[in-house]
């Protein structure tokens, strides 16, 4: 266990964004965070990364950890004159870089995310998927134990998605890295994730990918909503 969250609340201008969220994060795991839009997933990330302060509850880090974060940005609004290689290298710029080990070196990240052929291209010329891969590469060269990835699989084709899924699994196994991933991609979550949290203001369910997907198949259906909540009430 590296992180325990207990009864986390976040209220913004009388809107309850998070309500009594509790979960644990295991070391060297890939944990998915899914749920409807506006369910508080990104807010939860921002609280854990210390960008926001929770209004209630407890966050316990079991040991000091370095965190890296890939925000959910689709295309850069401000287009700096940077080549892909320089852009990825920015991930190594931080003052904490020497305190830990990165998941990948610069060369490895360009290689494994298939950025070599476009490494001299300007980031303003990238397609959505290329940009996503470059952002992912930029975070994997950061020295960190825990990587927060906000929707890393959107804009990616199935082939690339599989490659990245395998890459994350390899980094988990060989380098003891932990990944906490926001995703709506059931294929990726089914094949590559160890554990899944279903969040809609409250933590509705957690468990293996199969268990959750059975529940969430019907989760937009109001008929099943009450049933889903009752499933969540069962003590685990």
């Amino acid at each position: 266990m590296i992180l325990s969250v207990r009864n986390l609340d976040f209220i913004r201008q009388r809107d309850r964004i998070l309500d009594g969220v509790s979960f644990d994060l295991k070391e060297a795991s890939i944990t998915g965070l899914t749920g409807p839009n506006g369910g508080g997933k990104t807010t939860l990330f921002e609280i854990l990364l210390n960008f926001r302060r929770a209004t209630g509850g407890e966050i316990k880090w079991h040991r000091p950890l370095l965190c890296a974060y890939v925000p959910q940005v689709n295309l850069p609004r401000k287009v700096l004159p940077l080549t892909v290689k320089d852009f990825v290298e920015m991930g190594t710029w931080g003052p904490r870089q020497k305190q830990g080990s990165a998941a990948l070196t610069l060369e490895e990240s360009l290689e494994s995310l298939h950025l070599h052929s476009i490494s001299e291209k300007l980031i303003s010329e990238l397609s959505g998927g290329e940009w996503k891969r470059a952002s992912l590469a930029r975070s994997l060269v950061q020295a960190a134990d825990l990587y927060f990835l906000d929707e890393p699989f959107n804009h990616l084709d199935l082939h690339m998605e599989n490659q990245i899924g395998h890459l994350l699994q390899k980094l988990k196994r060989e380098k003891n890295k932990t990944f906490f991933v926001i995703s709506h991609d059931w294929h990726a979550m089914d094949h590559f994730f160890d554990h899944l949290l279903l969040l809609n203001v409250r933590l509705i369910a957690e468990g293996s990918v199969r268990e959750i997907s059975d529940i969430s198949m019907n989760w937009r259906d109001p008929q099943h909503h009450a049933w889903m909540h009752s499933v969540a009430e069962i003590p685990k």
Partner: peptide
């Protein structure tokens, strides 16, 4: 880094 993306700069420390 902060010009690029303030959130990214914060995540770098």
């Amino acid at each position: 880094a902060s010009v690029m993306d303030p959130i990214f700069a914060r995540s770098l420390g």
